[in-house]
Amino acid sequence: MNLERDSIKSAINSTPLPEDRLNQIINQSVFNHNVRKTKRTRYIKHTSAALLFIGLSGTLMFTTPTGQQLLSYLPFVNVEYLNGAGAGVTEVPEEAVYPLDETLTEQYVDIHFTEVSLSGDQVDIAYQQLVDPDVYSETFSVEAELFAIDDRGNRYDVPYNGGNSYYYDITREDLRWTATLSDLNPLAEKITFIPMATISYITDKPFEVFEYEGLEVDLRDGSVKIVESPGLPGKVYER
């Protein structure tokens, strides 16, 4: 094991270092680069929902040893909607493009997410399916597709718009897809994409379905985390 470590270390360390260029980048960037902070606030269009919350609000009055206390309450309202300018405000931008670089792995097909973009109530996502070249076979085809669920429990189909491959992809099945989720709930702040991959064989062998962990995207800032899959819709096995 030590020989492996030493060999790899000395191999990588043999790369000459352009020290002056690197120093210049660090010294100039650290003191001259301004941190960008751009986030716009989106006001919920569905004012009826906000009015409903306001209608349900009220005040409780009770007595304690120090006197009477008033407690305002907003039943059934998520606290985060009380922040900022008032109830009914979310920090999800109306439009945004978030680059992603997250890969979910299962058996021999990886799904690599590259970008998610918001446009009103529509969410577009770009991803690539990557087939392990060690097991790639000309006799099967792979189709990775997505479903989604938001943080309020609404489920969505995410039909893909089309797929492409490029000549420098490793296997013929390393396809890049774009897919679109429509009618996003205006109160949703996070969306979890639930991928699945179907491997179909040219022979009579039945197709196989692979389930993955979920990818949760925070629509407010584009941050992501891998989460336990909320489960695929049952219909995928009936096709």
Binding site: I12, N13, T15, L17, P18, L22, N23, I26, N27, V30, F31
Partner: peptide, 21 residues
Amino acid sequence: RYALQELLHAEKSKLYRMAFA
């Protein structure tokens, strides 16, 4: 920023060589 500068100088060779690979 001075602290950050020192940290980046300490990491620069590893980062560059990984990128080069």
